[in-house]
Nucleic acid binder design. Structure first.
Lengths: 161, 161
DNA sequence: ATTCAATCGTTAAGTATTTAACTATTGAAC
DNA sequence: GTTCAATAGTTAAATACTTAACGATTGAAT
């Protein structure tokens, strides 16, 4: 039996009043959740997770001047140890390889294997379609407006790098 | 010395053409990341994580008709085992307690402790301010527009529940 | 040449999340 | 009344993420 005296308390108490900030924040969180729920099974069809796809995509962009793990972490906006772990799994699947830099034996270059590049190509065949599906609720101008607003929100917290 | 030097910056090949869908998706992901990076240290100041705060908030709304763990999972849009683990940590901190339902011994009711309620009240004192900070890059009408667009995007994938 | 601080990557420990497999309880069909 | 399927919660195994601590390598100051 609660000692707390809420004999005359309303059933559902809210935390704080509605506000435009709160509505926007909640919307971003929900929107992200929706995105995740749509993309996870999609990538699972390629035996990948969203972060793994992201890493492959970024690493691939470097072409034949492969990035170090540190560089990769910065591009991905994740911590250095996280890259180590992601790479371990991608290496196990044979999609990337780490090659030591002989000129500086602390560094390791990250490169997609032929298999990794083939997988990416296979995904690209249907990827635009998948992204359009995710955004199907919005018209094209609305998609642009959404991107613009979110970029503006983000820009206000741009880190110095 | 790193062999790679920015003087001969690698040509970055992109994966697929720009599109409004892609721009919007990337913006949502970045926006969420920004939110996370702002909210994590903020909640850490209260010795909480964002999911833990979310759970406390939702559980608190039920007042003296506490939800079962299952109900809580549905409200939070997370899996049942996840709630078990979140509660274990919150219970360890003395912020919530689980009380078995004598009428159905499978169920457990989740209730905030006095300490948990005090913590929430303490957060509310500054929470609006923190949310305004997160959204400081946008005007109030822009915040509303952002929420509207994201809701529309999400609504197109509304699950049947 | 030796030392020493900075840099690169990894390991350790902890949180958050999932699905699948498990236990306990319930209630209803027989 | 016994059986049995459904329900509530937990445990197991995996991925993803963090910070802190650690090992190896480098380069530069002495």
């Amino acid at each position: 039996m609660p000692v707390q005296d809420n004999s005359a308390a309303p059933v559902l108490r809210d935390d704080f009043p509605e506000s435009a900030s709160r509505a926007a924040m909640v919307a971003v969180l929900r929107g992200y959740g929706t995105l995740q729920r749509l993309m996870e099974p999609y990538f699972a069809g390629f035996d990948l997770t969203p972060p793994q796809f992201q890493l492959l995509t970024i690493a691939n962009r470097f072409g034949d001047a492969p990035p170090t793990q540190r560089r990769l972490a910065r591009e991905l906006y994740v911590s250095f140890p996280n890259v180590t772990l992601l790479l371990k799994r991608l290496e196990r699947k044979g999609l990337v390889e780490r090659r030591g830099n002989p000129a500086d034996r602390r560094e390791k270059y990250v490169q997609l294997t032929a298999s990794g590049r083939r997988l990416l190509k296979r995904i690209w065949l249907v990827h635009q379609q998948q992204m359009d599906l995710v955004m199907k609720g919005l018209t094209v101008p609305e998609r642009k407006e959404l991107a613009k607003l979110l970029s503006k929100m983000t820009a206000a917290h741009r880190r110095v790098d």
